[in-house]
């Protein structure tokens, strides 16, 4: 099986199903779990974890784009 043989089928499925329907069957029919922990707001006081302050651009925050990725790496 190669991608070129099945790409059309994969696209047809995801182009047709709504996000809400996909979420519903994922959880109810197939047993997917949702990631519910919000890493941006986790309290780290009880652990020995150092972290960026909330106003530091995060390397993993997609909203900051590639430029902040470079900044975070350089910091």
């Amino acid at each position: 099986m190669k991608l070129k043989d099945v790409k059309e089928q994969i696209d047809a499925f995801f182009d047709t199903i709504t996000a809400e329907e996909l979420y519903a069957i994922s959880v109810l029919k197939y047993g997917f779990s949702e990631i519910t922990v919000d890493l941006e707001n986790v309290h780290f006081e009880t652990t020995a974890v150092s972290h960026y302050s909330s106003d530091t651009p995060s390397a993993f925050d997609e909203q900051h784009g590639h430029s902040s990725f470079g900044l975070a790496l350089a910091a």
Binding site: F14, A19, Y23, S26
Partner: peptide, 15 residues
């Protein structure tokens, strides 16, 4: 394709 679709409603699934 899965994540692209599911992210449109702000959901993040454990794979």
């Amino acid at each position: 394709r899965y994540t692209e679709k599911i992210n449109t409603i702000g959901r993040k699934m454990m794979f």
